[in-house]
Structure formats: C-alpha cells, structure tokens
C-alpha cells in the first residue's frame, strides 16, 4: 500500500491554505538502474474534496518530482471542515487522506 500523505490546511480569513506532501517515486520512465530502464510510475490524477464536495480534479504528468508538494487554496472553508485528497497513479494504485481545517495563527 502507498505511504500516507501529509496534509496541512490552515485558515486565513475564509480561505483555507492547503499544502499536501505525497509520498511517491514518480518514475519518469527514463531513469536507468544498471542497463535497464525503470518503468514509468507516476501519479496521474489528484482530486480534492471539501466536506465531500469536489473542489478540483487535476491531471498531472511524470514531469513532477519525486515526493511532490501540492499547494492550493479553497475559498469559503471554516475551521473543522474536512479536506480530503486522493491520488491515483498509472499502475492503478490509489491513496486517500483526510485532515481538518485548522484556524490560522
């Protein structure tokens, strides 16, 4: 199973600043180990939900780094709201994690 993500969601006014760290090898398909190419293995889609309502879907490519950081802002969020993030990769692996929006300091 894929390793957990680390999601931080902090409120700034009514905008939640969400930062997601994902654990993924993000193989480009061009790296070699010995003489053999390491096969493509990368996250293809990311989607984020606020209290179960999808706020965006994103398609990304193998050009993104290993263990990527994904940052976005969600309007109209309140402290205690649930932010969940899901990714799926080209091998069909999937990972979902959830966090609560925290009030900003």
């Amino acid at each position: 199973m894929a390793d957990p993500m680390k999601i931080r969601a902090t409120l700034q006014g009514d905008v939640a600043d969400v930062r997601v760290l994902m654990a993924h090898p993000m193989e480009t398909g061009q790296r070699k180990q010995g003489d053999k190419l390491v096969p493509l293995h990368f996250i293809q889609t990311i989607s984020a939900q606020l209290n179960g309502r999808t706020v965006f879907n994103a398609d990304i490519s193998q050009a993104i780094s290993r263990n990527p950081v994904f940052a976005f802002k969600v309007k109209g969020a309140k402290a205690g709201d649930k932010i969940s993030v899901t990714w799926t990769d080209n091998k069909g692996e999937k990972r979902s994690d959830e966090t609560e929006v925290r009030a900003g300091s």
Partner: peptide
C-alpha cells in the same frame, strides 16, 4: 527537486 506545483502559487 521537490518542486512545488500550485494551483495558486502560495
């Protein structure tokens, strides 16, 4: 690098 890709550049 661990690049930041942002929907909004935070």
């Amino acid at each position: 690098h661990a690049l930041v890709l942002g929907v909004v550049a935070a």
